[in-house]
Structures are given as C-alpha cells and as structure tokens.
Design a binder for these strands. Structure first.
Lengths: 270, 270
DNA sequence: AACCGAGTTCCGAATAATGGAACTCAATAC
DNA sequence: GTATTGAGTTCCATTATTCGGAACTCGGTT
C-alpha cells in the first residue's frame, strides 16, 4: 500500500512518461527513454504508442524521435485562460510594471515548483511561451517563498519534501530549518525578499496573492538587479505590489461564473 | 488500427475527459460534466479524481469546479519549444510581417484542426497564449487549406472526416467535394486563398511549410481585411511568404539535435 | 421528519495492463 | 556472403486495474 512516489494507476504512469519526455528538452529516441525508465521495454513502448496516438507526444518519423505533442499547446491555452491567474492579473501587472519601472513576474505553484505564468518586462517587448510555462525552484525565489509562507502545514511539508535545497549562491537558504524560519518572518512582514538566493545579482520583493479565506492563489514579484537598485530601494515598491495583489485576488474571486445568482457570501470583515 | 473516435485504453479515456473539461471554456462542475459524458458517474468521478491529483485538472474547492490544470502550461512550454515550428520560425515570421506590413500567422495541424502556434501582428504589440494555442477549422481557413492540399490521401480522408463543413459565410466551401476541387487548385498554384470563407471581411493568402520529402510541417499566412486590401493586392506578398516558408522548412530540418554541446540558455527570473 | 440531488465510496465482475520472450529488420562485423 | 548486434516491434498467458451498479453521506429544501 502507499504507492511509492508516482501517482495513480495507469494514467499516472503514462503522464510520468510524458514528463520524462518533456524533461529531456529535446526530441528523444525510444532507447534513450528506455535507459532511465523504470518500465520494461514492452510497457514503455505501449505508453509511448498510446501517448503518440493521442497527440500528447509527437513522433518525427524521419529522425525517429519523440517530443511533447502540440495537443498540449491547445490544452494549455485553455488552462492558461481558465486556471491561471494570468488573464485576470494582466492589467494589474502591466500597471504595476509601468508604475515601478521594473520587471514583474506572476507565478503559481505546480508540483512543488514555481511556475511562471506571466511576465511583464519593463524594458524590452514581451516574449511568449519562452517565459510562460517556465519553472523555477520554490525555496529560493521570492515568489516561491511568498507562496510557501502562506500554505497550511500539511501542504507545506508536502512541498518542502520536494525541494532540492541546492545552494545556487552563497545566500541560498539550503536547509528546511533555515527556510522555515524565513517563512515565519515573511508571514510577519507580509512579503518576501530574494537576496540573490537563486541568481547572483538578481534581487526581488514578492507578495502572495491570497483568497479571502487565505488560500494561496499565486504570487507576484518586482525584480531587478543589484546593478540597478538596492533591496532597500526595491522595498519602496512593496505597497504598490500588495495593492496589485489584492486587486488580482478580488478580481479572481468575483470573476468565475458570471451566470447564476452570484451570492454575496461575505465572510470575514470589510 | 483506426479507432473510431475514442482512443486507446484507459489513458485515452482519461484524456478524452480532459478534453471535455477544456472544451467548456470555463470552470465546470462535476454534474455538468456528467450530463454529456459517455461514462457512468463512478467512472467519470475516478477519472476526474485521477486527473486532478495529477495536476492535469485543477479543482477550485470554493466553487467546486474543475478546470484544466497548470501542469499543462508547463508541459506546453516544452511542446511549444520542441514540437512546434514556432521557435525556429519566429525570426522569419517577424521579418515577413514587417516586410509586408500585415499580420502573419503560423499554424500546424492538430486533430484535424488548425492550431495557431504563433502570430506576428503588424500593428499592435504581441499578446500571449491568447493566440498561441487557439484553434480554428481546417476546411475554411487559408492555413488549413494550404496544409490539407499537401497531405497524402489516407491522412487527408482521415482529416476530412473530422470537418464539420459548417458554412460560416456565403463563401465557405461547405462540402467535401468543393473542398477537394479547391485543394487540387491549391496544389497547382502553390498557395491558398481565404476569400472571406471563415470570417466576413477577413482575407488571406497562405503557403504550406513542407519538408524535402514533402511532409506537411505547417503553414503560414499573410492576413488582412477587405477594408485595407484586395485579394489581388495581397497576392503580391506570396513570393515573400513562400521564401519565408522555405527558410523555415530548411531551418527546421537542419536544426534538431544541436546534440551534446551544452546549452548556453539565458535565464533570469526571480 | 421525509425528501432530494450532488458528490462520494464499495466491491465483485469484467477488462485492460503487464512484461518476458520471441521476432523483424536494418546496419555493421567477420 | 553470412553472422552478429541492437533498436524497435509484436505476442500472449498471467495478473492487477478498471468498471459501474448500487448503496451511502450530507447539505439544503419541502
């Protein structure tokens, strides 16, 4: 009992294979997948066949390689629109970015990792998937820590178990203990710093986006480099960021289901 | 081979459910899914549970609704980068767009539909997933017809069987017969027109992107509105579009497997 | 208190997944 | 010209999962 780590049933296994292909970051041969797969040849083969016939993988017959399929792009369009904060948050992020003159990131938690769902760069024109969909570590980024700080204990320990605690820089909080202490401070302070904990020279302040009931929806950060600003100077933008986060949370809640009798189920205080 | 509509095994069924959720275009309750699902309650329930626990669906506990999950966004990032033409094609598309001063679309075929994987708008700044991931009909768009014209017969008839042939406008080719005739003309001519067949007032010329062996990779179109240009005037841009398509095809072939050589990937997110 | 319907759990029967082994078919070696 | 190798593919009896009808739980309504 208690499945080791992978998920539920056949579907979970198939998706695991899909992740493996995606993790390669390039088209991959069957044999490459096989070495490094927990499944025997025939089984892996069936999974790959199924996924390909479903369009979740694409097969290049000329090079005999597999890659994540375009069906995913179509599905992700729906996911991004509905399940991510991005469509709701975009106007606020743009306003915030131009107000503070720095890059703003919008992120959510996925599988214990930080997933960037939108980005507004102050200087250069916006790019595409190149950032939306990108992932980063949760334990050493501003947005990651801001979200972790507001998880409840069962969820938090689940996520912490998935962190690598690799020390990217001398400032990285590389143990669960150090991180937990920091998370407490973040809760008290209301926002998180990134003091060059992930990349040297990159600093940010980040605030969580929370529902009224305190559930973590995501986080946003104002990012810059040490060559442009100090952390103290960045901190001046925290109120604006918190304002934006509040607006996004409110929009996200009142939105969804324009139909029906929207019940004014207000709890808490005004 | 030739599975009627549903797919292979348990995984296929689960993905079918995923599609159903995505098709709603908004967060959806379990009971809504149930009416309109071919599966009995208990079975559907298990699928939804599995998909949710896998992050392919997200569940909003406050509203008791399901939506496509953010794990899809992460997977799609990989798909877009590897499996789509977009990363390779982008510079050529930008060049083409600014050269001709019109909107350029890049599309691929997915499940018999046109899937737009990139877009370069000549006038306003670029948006995001809002277009990448969007789908359209194959039988009445320029890019769709350009791709269909170069499919081999088995693939073509498979795709044609999936078309609705709904008449969006008076100009829509709304039978397989009419379409097949048109496809022949496209093959002879080398490019496709859209004569307001999908949206009134919208016209385009489209060229296929083909491998040396003639396999269809995708298509690109130069689009405008009847208020700006006539079809004849648009036709002047066909050579430039064909040039771009050739360049993209060549790049796409020689690319793949930069092999070994470590990745000098630029990062920068905090 | 009885009812209702959405959501959830149960469990024996039915079905689909499993994986060792054998096969195909190139490319390379002898 | 034949043997060898290994990636990719198929087979099939065994085994583990999925299936789904029915029963249950739990708010809210009559």
């Amino acid at each position: 009992m208690a499945a080791p780590q992978s998920g539920d049933g056949t579907v979970g296994k198939a998706l695991e294979v899909l992740d493996q292909v995606a993790a390669f970051g390039r088209p991959v041969r069957f044999s490459e997948l096989l070495t490094g797969s927990k499944y025997p040849k025939a089984t892996l083969y069936r999974f790959v066949q199924t996924l390909t016939s479903q369009g979740m993988l694409s097969f290049d017959p000329e090079r005999q390689t597999y890659a994540p399929g375009i069906r995913l792009v179509r599905l992700a369009h729906a996911a991004w629109q509905q399940s991510s904060l991005a469509p709701v948050a975009r106007p606020f992020i743009e306003a915030l970015s131009s107000q503070v003159g720095e890059t703003v990131h919008l992120a959510q938690l996925d599988h214990g990792q930080v997933l960037y769902v939108d980005k507004r760069n102050a200087v250069e024109p916006i790019e595409m998937y190149s950032q939306a969909g990108k992932v980063g570590p949760a334990y050493c980024t501003g947005v990651g820590k801001a979200m972790l700080a507001y998880l409840d204990e069962p969820a938090l320990s689940r996520v912490l178990a998935q962190q690598s605690f690799h020390a990217f820089t001398p400032n990285t909080l590389n143990t669960e203990q150090k991180l937990r202490t920091e998370l407490g401070e973040i809760r008290q302070r209301g926002f998180a710093y990134d003091r060059e904990e992930h990349e040297p020279g990159i600093i940010c302040v980040a605030v969580p986006i929370l529902t009224e009931s305190g559930r973590v929806l995501g986080a946003l950060s104002v990012t810059t480099s040490t060559s442009r600003k100090t952390l103290d100077a960045l901190e001046a933008h925290v109120p604006a960021a918190q304002q934006a986060a509040d607006n996004i949370a409110r929009e996200a809640q009142s939105w969804r289901f324009p139909d029906q009798t929207s019940k004014p189920e207000k709890i808490g205080m005004a």
